[in-house]
Amino acid sequence: MKAAVWHGARDVRIAETDVPTPGPDEVLIRVAYCGICGSDLHEYANGPHAIPTTAPHPASGVTAPLILGHEFCGTVAALGSSVADLAVGDPVAIEPNYRCGTCPRCQAGDYHICRHFGFAGLMGHGGLAEYAAVPRYMAHSLPAAVPLEQAALFEPASVALHALRRAESPRGSLAVVGLGPIGLLTVLLAARRGATRIIAVDVAPARLEIAARLGATDLVDASGGADAAAAVRGLTGGEGVDVAFEVVGSQAALDTCLGATRRGGRVVLVGLAQQVRLDAFALVNNEQSIISSVGYRDTYPELIRLVADEGVDLRPVVTSTVALKDVVDQGFEALLGGGGQIKVLVDPAPEAVATAPATHRAEAAR
């Protein structure tokens, strides 16, 4: 089979590799779509960050070079000897986080912060390939009403949904600072969960317009040095929002979130930043809370229900679908180049074409 194999920074190769044989508790997936995540971009641009290079990851047993891709879905191609509750041909969405099932956090149900935390496609072989073998617990069966193109977006949507759950303010006012795929999906799911006011903040007008179509009630253009925090406060009568989501991973975005949040409010860190500075005096005097949100747990059933039963469409964040052979130039490099791409899906099938469905291309370009 063909696979996108990470060897080092700026060194991802499309290679011929053996189709994996599933272990007793694994399933072999014929991959339909795999999204490119911001984490993948970091590994491609200047990794390794999460990819194990010197010692095998304890859950996967893998070291680099490894197959990238953790946002994927497909159909069951083969079953391990101990798997009896799936059948060949079943469509599945992959929840790619490893879990040991025995550490204290797993025993408490918090498997997303397992002692051996990791993701297939970052700490083990993933879905930027024609086939992928994963533990049975990663595979969620899909009803016919869920298109595979939607299922490929369950992973980033899960990050957004988990962050909203962490916020514990589903019906209040909120700001989403940073409108990449996860920020846009946070807007969409916040609207579905009943948020009364959703203020979307970004520097790109096209992303702000998509946020408006996904449910944002107000838009703040933060380009050109604009004081986005002041704009958010102005929209809320000087009060500020109940919750602000930092979905960039930068000092400027965090400052905006703290400045935009009311006294007693909460900032949820979703973006990844190495270090940030805090005005602890202001934080204490305003009695604001900062919490973090990593990964997700128990989110796929809700997303399956939202798509299958309530008609939620996650696809407006998709700006192109490319063939596996073109993943470096039309995927990684295109996303790093700032040319308007938001979410790129990769179709590993030979007939894959480097275009998105026309409706989604039009939405992204508006």
Rank of each mutant, 00 (worst) to 15 (best):
A133T: 09
A354K: 10
L272S: 11
L86V: 05
F332M: 13
A32N: 04
G38M: 04
A352L: 06
H70W: 08
T102E: 15
A144P: 00
P58N: 06
E168D: 15
R366N: 13
V267D: 13
T299W: 07
S39M: 07
Q150M: 02
L208G: 07
F117G: 00
L189R: 01
A195M: 04
E239Y: 07
C100T: 08
H7W: 11
T102W: 01
A323R: 14
R262T: 12
R207V: 15
L174S: 09
V146Q: 13
L174G: 08
S158G: 15
A129Q: 00
R136G: 05
R115T: 10
E239C: 02
M138V: 05
E239N: 08
G240Q: 13
R136A: 04
T186K: 07
A9Y: 03
A200S: 02
Y137S: 14
A151H: 03
G234F: 01
D326E: 13
P181C: 10
L174K: 05
V146S: 01
I304K: 08
H140I: 11
G338I: 15
G264K: 04
G69I: 09
G118N: 01
G224I: 14
C103V: 14
A151M: 06
V19N: 01
P65T: 11
T21H: 06
D279R: 02
E310F: 03
G295M: 12
A145R: 15
T75G: 00
G118S: 02
G249L: 02
G126R: 03
A228F: 04
K2A: 00
L278S: 09
V5D: 04
G109R: 14
V88M: 05
R136C: 03
A204C: 10
L235Y: 00
V318R: 02
S250G: 10
E149A: 15
G69Q: 10
V31I: 09
A9Q: 14
S292F: 12
R30C: 00
G172K: 01
R136M: 05
L214V: 14
G121I: 03
V312I: 11
A190Q: 10
T217E: 09
L66D: 08
P104A: 13
G126K: 04
V243R: 03
D227T: 08
E71R: 09
R192E: 07
A354N: 14
I14F: 07
A157H: 01
V232L: 11
S141W: 02
E168V: 14
L258K: 04
G224K: 10
A230R: 13
E333I: 08
A129W: 01
L272A: 14
S60L: 01
V159F: 01
H125W: 01
L142D: 08
G89A: 10
V76D: 04
C100G: 07
S173Q: 12
E333G: 02
Y300Q: 08
T217D: 09
A157C: 03
V92C: 09
F154N: 12
